[in-house]
Computed example of a mutant assay.
Amino acid sequence: MTSRHGTTTLWRPTGPKELDLVRELKWRAWPARLLGQPFFYPVLNEDYAVKIARDWNVKHDGAGFVTRFEVESQFLRRYPVRQAGGQTILELWVPAAELDDFNAHMAGEIEVVHEFR
């Protein structure tokens, strides 16, 4: 997790369908979770996001993307860092019901930094 100027850099591995929804939201918000998706999972390091996009999204969706975005650091303190495996496999679990509030605390646009096919 990288912090700068009051914001924290997060990454999100995503497939093409979710990326299309982000594009429809003008690169400023994450779409609502689907039924059966109780959490939004941004990750805290780029390497972990790359691994998921390359090894999981490509296999299941034909393409994988790594996005990078900034969120107000003070706001993120409400979400404990969760270790989902090894020491560098770190993520936040944002309840789906709080995603609009999370989006409201984003700074700038969501950008695609890696693409895998």
Rank of each mutant, 00 (worst) to 15 (best):
W93Y: 02
F102T: 04
R78G: 10
D101H: 11
E91A: 03
V81Y: 06
R78T: 05
E72N: 14
A96V: 06
I89L: 13
E91R: 13
R77G: 04
G86E: 15
P80C: 03
Y79V: 01
E98S: 08
Q87C: 09
A96N: 07
R68S: 07
V81E: 07
V94W: 08
I89M: 10
I89Y: 07
R82K: 09
R82G: 01
I89F: 06
S73R: 15
Q83A: 05
L76D: 14
E70H: 15
E91Y: 02
L76P: 14
T88C: 08
F102C: 04
P95R: 08
Q74I: 13
S73A: 15
L99T: 12
S73C: 06
A84Q: 11
L92A: 02
F75T: 10
L92I: 03
E72K: 14
E72L: 12
N103V: 09
F75H: 14
A97D: 09
G86D: 14
V71G: 08
R82Q: 02
L92H: 11
F75L: 09
P95D: 04
T88Q: 15
R77K: 15
T67C: 12
R68L: 02
R68M: 04
V81A: 06
Q87Y: 07
Y79C: 01
L99R: 13
Q74N: 07
L76W: 15
E72G: 06
L90D: 00
R82N: 02
N103S: 07
S73Q: 14
R77I: 05
D101N: 13
T88D: 11
F75P: 09
A96Y: 13
F75M: 10
P95W: 12
F102S: 00
V94R: 02
